[in-house]
Amino acid sequence: MVKAKDKKNRMLEIFYRAMVGGNINTKALADEYGVSGKSISRDIGEIKNFLSDNRDLVNYKDLRYSASSKTYHLEFDHVLLSKELIAIIKVLIGCRAFSKEELLTLISKLKAFTSHQDRALLDQIITKEVYHYNEVGRDCESVIDNLWKLTRCIKERQEISISYYKVDREPVERRIMPIAITFSDYYFYLIAYRCDTEDWTPLYFRVDRITHITEHRTHFTLAPEHDFDVGKLRDKIQFMFPGKLRKIKFSYTGDSVQAILDRIPTARVLEQNGKTSILEAETFGTGINMFLLSQGRKIKALGPPEFVDEIREEISDMDVQYKE
């Protein structure tokens, strides 16, 4: 007869194996411990009862049986479903914002939260994409480290100084009040106000170009009118080009007006005439011009006059290049 102490130790060992992602095979365990298969089945039954009675305490769901492998495995309440995990990983790969080392670390940690059975399948699905992964260029040592430090400073309303490379590669130093972080088109952006001016014009800094961050003891407060809504900005800006808010109007003759509406969340169709759609949108800055010009002859600027002139001038300058 198996002693109670031996039975308890055996159950603890079975539970531990399940915790670390192992599959529990009744026959194999019966042979290992020199007991009957029924004894192992009773052990598993008692473990299942314990999990059911103490779900809030142990945060596990159940020991589930797989008919295909004839084994039990431990399911967690906090496990990501494989369909959820693959969606997250595909977004991480597609954004290209992280170094390959950072990406692999993130994926490895995410996989630890899914079921043991699906990890091999996930590896198979993403192996080629990860192998051919190309990160965007960066100047900082770690985008993730920068994001975390900036996030803390935003929360604490703490002034900082940054060493930064401008788009023309000129290095600059700026003392700023960080107010928000957003992501757009491969890059994370820090939105901030300068400390040495009173015009309260928001500035955008690519997080990957920030090479050093100095945290100051000085804290700042913002009047309600200077607080920042990143959600509204995301809807009204393209490629993070700063500028004034304006309402533009244009026509579109392409096959998918929905693609335009998806790219410009504030856009709405004013009228439809055959394949021609007349749209209106509120946008910040001139980044919208870049997107609309990428649509070629499918787009025609209609207003306001300065917007029409910007598009016409850009097209004229492009034409001159091909005439030289």
Score class of each variant (00 low, 15 high):
Ala4Pro: 14
Asn9Gln: 13
Asn9Gly: 11
Asn9Phe: 09
Glu13Gln: 12
Ala18Pro: 10
Ala18Tyr: 04
Met19Tyr: 04
Val20Met: 08
Gly21Glu: 03
Gly21Tyr: 00
Gly21Ser: 01
Ile24Ser: 01
Lys27Met: 07
Lys27Gln: 09
Leu29Ser: 06
Ala30Tyr: 08
Asp31Pro: 01
Asp31Trp: 06
Glu32His: 09
Val35Leu: 01
Val35Pro: 01
Gly37Glu: 15
Lys38Tyr: 11
Arg42Cys: 11
Gly45Trp: 04
Gly45Arg: 05
Gly45Gln: 07
Phe50Asn: 11
Asn54Tyr: 06
Asn54Pro: 03
Val58Pro: 07
Asn59Tyr: 13
Lys61Glu: 14
Asp62Lys: 12
Leu63Lys: 04
Lys70Ser: 07
Lys70Val: 02
His73Ser: 12
His73Trp: 10
His78Trp: 15
Val79Ser: 15
Ser82Pro: 06
Glu84Val: 07
Leu85Ser: 05
Leu85Cys: 08
Ile89Asp: 04
Lys90Ile: 11
Leu92Tyr: 07
Leu92Thr: 05
Leu92Gln: 04
Ile93Glu: 02
Cys95Thr: 12
Ser99Asp: 06
Lys100Val: 04
Lys100Asn: 05
Glu102Gly: 01
Leu103His: 01
Ser108Thr: 08
Ser108Gln: 06
Phe113Gln: 11
His116Ile: 14
Ala120Glu: 12
Leu122Gly: 05
Ile125Gln: 12
Lys128Ser: 09
Val130Tyr: 05
Tyr131Ile: 08
Tyr131Leu: 08
His132Ala: 08
Tyr133Ser: 02
Tyr133Val: 00
Asn134Trp: 04
Gly137Leu: 11
Arg138Pro: 08
Arg138Lys: 15
Asp139Phe: 15
Val143Thr: 09
Val143Pro: 03
Val143Gly: 04
Ile144Ala: 02
Asp145Ser: 10
Trp148Arg: 13
Ile154Asp: 08
Lys155Leu: 14
Arg157Cys: 13
Gln158Asp: 02
Ile162Thr: 03
Tyr164Leu: 13
Val167Cys: 12
Val167Gln: 14
Val167Ser: 15
Asp168Val: 07
Glu170Ala: 14
Glu170Ile: 12
Glu173Gly: 13
Arg174Ser: 09
Pro178Gly: 03
Ile179Gly: 03
Ile179Val: 08
Ile179Arg: 02
Asp185Pro: 02
Ile191Ser: 09
Ala192Trp: 01
Ala192Asn: 02
Tyr193Thr: 03
Thr197Cys: 06
Asp199Gly: 07
Thr201Trp: 09
Tyr204Gly: 00
Arg206Gln: 07
Arg206Tyr: 06
Arg206Gly: 03
Val207Glu: 06
Asp208His: 13
Arg209Lys: 05
Ile210Leu: 09
His212Gly: 15
Ile213Asp: 06
Thr214Pro: 06
His216Lys: 04
Phe220Lys: 00
Leu222Ile: 02
Arg234His: 14
Lys236Arg: 11
Leu245Asp: 02
Arg246Leu: 08
Lys247Ala: 10
Gly254Tyr: 00
Asp255Phe: 10
Ser256Glu: 07
Val257His: 04
Gln258Asn: 14
Arg263Phe: 09
Ala267Glu: 05
Arg268Thr: 07
Val269Gly: 01
Thr276Gln: 12
Thr276Ala: 07
Ile278Gln: 08
Leu279Met: 10
Ala281Phe: 00
Glu282Phe: 04
Gly285Pro: 01
Asn289Tyr: 09
Arg297Glu: 13
Lys298Ala: 11
Ile299Leu: 03
Leu302His: 05
Val308Met: 06
Val308Glu: 05
Glu310Ala: 05
Arg312Asp: 13
Ile315Thr: 09
Ser316Met: 13
Met318Arg: 10
Val320Phe: 10
